[in-house]
Computed example of a mutant assay.
Amino acid sequence: MNSGSQKREREQRQKLQHFLTDLALLGSLQGFQYFQPWLRGREELLLTIVNEDSGWRSPGFAVSQASSLISSSSSSSTSSTYSLASDPGSPLPGDKQGPRQGTQGPQPGQQHTPRPQHHVQKGSSDAHLLPASPSEREITVPEVNCTLFLLAGYAKYGRPYAWIRSNHERLVNIGGTDSMVKDTPMKLKSITDWGSKEVRVWDIVNELVCLCTIPSPTNPFTLDMRYLKSLPLPERFLSSGALLNFLEKYVVYGNRDELHYNKVLEEVKTLRRLHVQTLSEVQRQQCRVDKPVSPAIPEPVKEE
């Protein structure tokens, strides 16, 4: 191996390490409106994404509690509403002719920009890139009106991949077994660009949210302020600080040409005000707790 190849290999390893650092940071956060991350191990993150934006509130727990029966019935109703079978983000496990076009378009009042078709090349090795956590052993089920994804950066693959874990019939209609679809990585533009561009974890999340949520949100990283304000004071302080750290990192390193970049800036300002206000409340509460209590002075005994 020549020095040029070794240098590229080192750069790719370092790039993957940065991705895993971002993955761990994202996995510790709660309070986004359109998605909910849950870190599972050093290399894996489960991402629950809202299917239809109807004023959905982000839940206050990390693991989904919806039953598979409810989730299944919900996915049936959403799949009949809109089909994304021609999306570039659809998983295409060895389908030579590409996905079939969906039969229905968006309902009145919904806006959705058509995306160009992407196809898996014949003989693509992507079909053999299995996740470390096979879908048949997946115990997490998504919330109602949500789709579950597995996002991972395995060292053995040297780059991130995303697998769909539920409601795949909403996005693809290509036949085959459920496990074949769920254990084949999705054909995402952000992941395709990994080798030639600076791709961060928020780029993949952005693409998945815009792929999955209908109508596509103007800001995939919109915060659920009602949820944050409902948290107990210490938890609100920690959560707002962690979210602020992530979004400020996005502001510094994110793509400023993205249409939602300025909206993220607005979220940062709002979140910063909440964080400072919460800090003041925490300090006032602490002062009340630490305030010394003057000892009671006994009354003098009157002599008879």
Rank of each mutant, 00 (worst) to 15 (best):
S190T: 09
V252A: 12
N262V: 03
S239K: 14
P217W: 00
D257I: 13
L233P: 02
T147C: 08
E11I: 03
G109V: 09
T222R: 14
V251P: 01
L223E: 07
L26K: 02
P106D: 00
G89N: 05
T218H: 15
E235K: 06
S67T: 15
S179M: 05
G4V: 14
D224C: 13
H168R: 04
A66H: 14
V252L: 11
Q121R: 07
G176D: 06
T113G: 10
I174C: 09
I164L: 05
K15L: 01
S76Y: 13
R236E: 15
L16V: 08
E299V: 09
V144D: 07
G153P: 05
L271G: 10
Y161N: 12
W202C: 11
P131V: 09
I164V: 11
R200M: 03
S90C: 11
L223A: 03
T103Q: 14
F149T: 08
Q14N: 14
P88T: 01
L211P: 05
N219C: 14
P88Q: 03
L247F: 14
Y34V: 05
G175T: 07
Q17Y: 05
A66R: 15
A242W: 03
V209L: 09
V251D: 08
K197T: 06
K263M: 07
Y154K: 15
S239M: 12
R236M: 11
Y161K: 09
T184W: 04
S5W: 01
E235Y: 00
G195C: 09
T147P: 01
M1Q: 10
P295W: 02
N145W: 06
E44F: 13
G4F: 14
A24Y: 00
S135A: 15
R8N: 13
V144C: 10
S73F: 14
R57A: 14
F246P: 05
S72C: 02
S166F: 06
T21W: 10
R40G: 09
G176Y: 07
I164Q: 04
S196Q: 15
I214R: 12
H260I: 06
L223F: 01
L233I: 07
